[in-house]
Amino acid sequence: MENAPKLTARQLNFYYGKFKALEEISITINRNQVTALIGPSGCGKSTFLRCLNRMNDLIPGTRVEGDIRLDGEDIYDSNIDVVSLRRRVGMVFQKPNPFPKTIFENVAYGLRVNGIKDKKILKDRVEKALKQSALWDEVKNRINESALGLSGGQQQRLCIARALAVEPDVLLMDEPASALDPIATQKIEDLIHELKNNFTIIIVTHSMQQAARVSDITAFFYMGKLIETGDTETLFTRPALKQTEDYITGRFG
């Protein structure tokens, strides 16, 4: 199992009404690696990311063809419990979105939703998640203060802690640093390097430099198609296809 892929997509098509947003996407995502999805706006990278924990189900008029498997299990199978799927495949969004609650309650939220009431367990899991998201030292003395008092970078790490608290296998990150300053961005990127030891991470980013810095594998999307996937170093130094080369060297269009 250790070497088996964490996630696979096979001939995935995705429609917003009649518009085909993803076309025949096939990709294998290895466990404990960071996979970056890059491409121009509207290329389908965020749509693909949201397919991986069925977030698109929430958008009316959407339709999926093909299959996505998590540890070999079809996540679009009718027997799949979507809440349980989203616990296993957590998500962090572009803008930090803490709840107007205390720091502790923000992280404990998912645990409570999943029925955990034991105070000792809650306390341990919150502390563990805040340590994993490299925020513990900064907030341990004000854990019961409002999360809204944290800086933007801290809020984003809090959201990562909130996602980690329910102990997912996979973490989806949709431009997690695009609203942050360079120092907060660097902390998130360092954190991604740390987290891949325990999680499988898929990140959508508009910054190619960020993709190059944090990922092991990079996938280039264009107009709903997966154009090229490869080892990040190879893709950024000697891409196989001209289309990829044109995009990463800024000679597009």
Partner: peptide
């Protein structure tokens, strides 16, 4: 400019 690919080479 953080050049990539052929530009970097």
């Amino acid at each position: 400019e953080q050049p990539m690919a052929r530009d970097l080479r």
